[in-house]
């Protein structure tokens, strides 16, 4: 942090204080999910920073008393989707829906660090399965909240979760047999 503190208006200071107290406590959860969703720590930090700055920009739209965590996750999902769309537009042949390619391109040496192989199995999932799994299983959002965040029907959340779980089990079993 720089030594010179920029001069701000008292109203801005109050607004910033309010923002910090409600938002900054969710940063670890956002970062954890972002790492698993994009597979790259540096990119995940960039995504979370982008998310927080955007939350600040639209802080007036946040209704006090509503679920701030869900609001932030919704912003982050939006940031990730936009980045993904941008990546696919630049290099359409590097489709994020190809699990093997995603793994090779984006996870680098992280796989070896996970002793249980769960992270590696998660990395192999197509991104749309991975994100729904992260939101429901890790962040414990309800199906309804996940549906709103991802802008997909509840039925799609359910089917993606079911399919994601089956794929995870398959990857984990395959990993276990290879290790054995």
């Amino acid at each position: 942090m720089s030594d010179a503190v920029p001069v701000t208006q008292p109203a801005d200071q109050v607004r910033l204080g309010n923002f910090e107290s409600q938002v900054f406590s969710h940063t670890p959860a956002l970062l954890r999910t972002a790492v698993r969703m994009c597979g790259n720590a540096a990119e995940a930090e960039d995504i979370v920073q982008d998310t927080l700055l955007r939350a600040w920009k639209y802080w007036d739209r946040f209704e006090p008393g509503t679920n701030c965590r869900a609001w932030l996750f919704r912003i982050m999902i939006n940031v990730i989707h936009r980045r993904r769309e941008g990546l696919e537009a630049v290099a359409p042949h590097l489709s994020m829906s190809e699990p093997e390619m995603t793994n090779v391109l984006r996870f680098e040496s992280k796989i070896e660090m996970d002793e249980n192989g769960t992270a590696a199995a998660l990395a192999k999932l197509p991104s749309e399965y991975r994100e729904v799994l992260m939101l429901v299983l890790v962040e414990e959002f309800s199906y309804k909240e996940a549906s709103a965040m991802l802008n997909i029907p509840m039925g799609t959340v359910m089917s993606r979760l079911h399919r994601a779980r089956q794929m995870m089990m398959k990857f984990l079993k395959r990993g276990a047999s290879q290790a054995g």
Partner: peptide, 10 residues
């Protein structure tokens, strides 16, 4: 990240 965001906002 929080520090960076705070600095940027300020």
């Amino acid at each position: 990240i929080n520090d960076r965001v705070r600095n940027k906002i300020l």
